[in-house]
Write a protein that binds this DNA or RNA. Structure first.
Lengths: 347, 347
DNA sequence: CCCTCCATTGGGAGCGCTCTCAACCCGCCC
DNA sequence: GGGCGGGTTGAGAGCGCTCCCAATGGAGGG
């Protein structure tokens, strides 16, 4: 690849001239070469190589109205993204899939409650062909924004009903949180545990509520005092565990709605000299990479293929974009990915 | 903001017509309004609002030759990005700074060794005005790539001398790793420890080597057997600690080159019934958010302002871009950010 | 009162590319 | 042998915007 002295990039015109063809033919070759006779194709290809021609993206976008880029919107102003490998893994999956389809990833981090305007403007501004969004909280304006922007969007995680802008269903990819939770609680039940507590996540996140629903599916008559609320963090898990132990000292199992809270709970149990899994069996959720394996004992937990979810999101969006080009702008269907039980030592 | 029915976005032409001015004047107003009389400015602004006009980015880029976007290249094909909050925090800082300057962030994750070609093509393709890169390993082709692409770039972390493409110094932002390490080791020495071991990071990362140098600055005559190599992961820290304990059972302090390895070391020490900090004092590095505070005992460590480093990188790059526009294409100077000792319970 | 000058404004030329459409050329069939 | 059709190719018109340059008009000085 020849070096680029800035501001002197060869144009299609130059390639055409060098190959002795018209700009139109050069363009055809650059875009796949269909309908151009072999010798000409070769000539143009050679000219491209010699000149180090790289198509001007802006010019192309101007006429095709496709940017070849997709926005990833993360509406999480706060700290969670730092400590949570969840996002990184989804992004890795998204990136892989987009790269494979020559599509760029524009990252939009929401910098605060007032920042949605900026996001809306950007999405409406024709900078990107579509959006992948992580909208975790029920009060989130994102679904409404993407709908208004008139570009296809796929969500990571089921948006809450209240955030859903009416008739148009918002396509999303989510793990089978409820089913996973059932798996976890059923294991504890099968183990013969009789007072199974639950540390649930924040009520404004659908994943937390779905997991709670799964717990209730298996234990419809559970003592309400056996449920404590956390915030998906280690600290909050510890607090919730303390609370549970005060309310129901006789509990013999805990299902925590994620591994972070499970590890917080584990710390409290250890501090009190309560043995895991002998006295209290513990199950987490997420199978989060370093956390679940590194605790002592390692966590029994529910695995979800996070990277796979990212790939799937990208694939759904790319599909919608392709269909959009073909004319029929159908929105993709949502997908729920399966979860599996990973048995380690904590239960 | 009016809704967008796709494919029918108003153009500058439409705004001009509605405001009763020429396209040129409308353009001036949209771009700040300098040199346009107040009443006309107001008319155009009103037309913009009524029509919901949003400038076409591609058209603008085509003529200005500025994309208003910056690439963030992460040349870390593997798992580290998942468990390491480091990147997320830098990106958060970068995002804040870029957003404040109306610049977009295009994320480029290197998907494997063969993927550098794609990155090179992208950076050379006029998609972005500049690049922020994280090039962690000495064998990294990134500095060469950005140089060839002819766009300004700023690195996160000092590139190794071997990766540096010759005369042109590569501008970077890095923590004062060496100074931080000195702080850590000096503390241990001041505490009266006499056999201070070091768990260093992988030799192909300059941060690891700088921290090792800092250790040696304070302990030039240290027993080589007191140095063990890890890979910046929890597991490798545990292994290194085991090794050290075999080689020098009498060691009374450990400086680990990051908190992850420190926590691995801590686990081994606890398993062996060695008390921290009484028998062995332990210092980490990074002050990594959940890790350092959550260990038992909490880690004494070296803090670096990671988000600040990200902001700084972005600021340097934006500065270079502005200067580039002004004509004088000077590369920014590198910056070393200071580190501070955070005293907790492990030393 | 006329001329000069500066502050505004508008006209128009492109930025580099795609895409429609007409022109062309060849082989084939009647 | 002439006409027709399909496969190739080229010419030209924009995509929406910025920016150069010329035109305009009013203020101020002589």
């Amino acid at each position: 690849m020849p070096e680029q002295s800035p501001g002197s990039r060869p144009t299609l015109e130059a390639v055409a001239a060098r190959a002795g063809v018209s700009r139109a033919t050069a363009s055809r070759v650059v875009n796949g070469g269909d309908g151009v006779r072999k010798p000409l194709v070769d000539k143009v290809r050679a000219a491209v190589d010699e000149l180090g021609y790289i198509p001007n993206h802006a010019a192309r976008t101007l006429v095709t109205r496709r940017t070849g880029a997709v926005a990833v919107v993360i509406a999480e102003p706060e700290i969670r993204i730092f400590s949570d490998p969840f996002f990184s893994q989804q992004i890795r999956g998204i990136s892989k899939e987009l790269t494979a389809h020559d599509t760029q990833l524009v990252l939009l981090l929401v910098e605060g409650p007032g920042d949605f305007d900026r996001i809306a403007r950007y999405l409406s501004g024709g900078h990107v062909d579509g959006a992948l969004a992580f909208s975790l909280h029920t009060d989130d304006a994102l679904p409404e924004i993407t709908r208004r922007a008139g570009i296809p969007a796929v969500y990571g995680g089921r948006p809450s009903p209240t955030a859903d802008p009416g008739d148009q269903a918002v396509p999303f990819v989510d793990a089978d949180n409820r089913g996973g939770a059932r798996l976890a609680v059923r294991l504890l039940k099968d183990l013969g545990r009789e007072r199974i507590a639950h540390i649930c996540g924040p009520p404004d996140q659908t994943s937390a509520m779905d997991r709670l629903d799964g717990y209730r599916d298996v234990l419809p008559d559970a003592d309400p005092a056996l449920i404590a609320e956390g915030a998906f963090t280690v600290e909050s898990g510890a607090r919730a565990m303390t609370e549970l132990l005060e309310r129901r000292p006789g509990l013999d199992a805990v299902f925590a709605a994620n591994d972070l809270m499970a590890s917080g709970a584990l710390r409290v149990l250890r501090e009190r000299g309560i043995s895991v899994p002998e006295q209290v069996a513990l199950v987490g959720f997420d199978d989060m990479d370093p956390v679940a394996k590194e605790t002592d004992p390692p966590l029994t937990t529910i695995n979800q293929d996070i990277e796979g979810q990212g790939r799937l999101m990208a694939r759904l969006l790319l599909g919608a974009l392709d269909r959009g080009r073909a004319g029929s702008g159908t929105t993709p269907a949502s997908v729920i990915t399966s979860t599996t039980l990973v048995r380690r030592a904590s239960a």
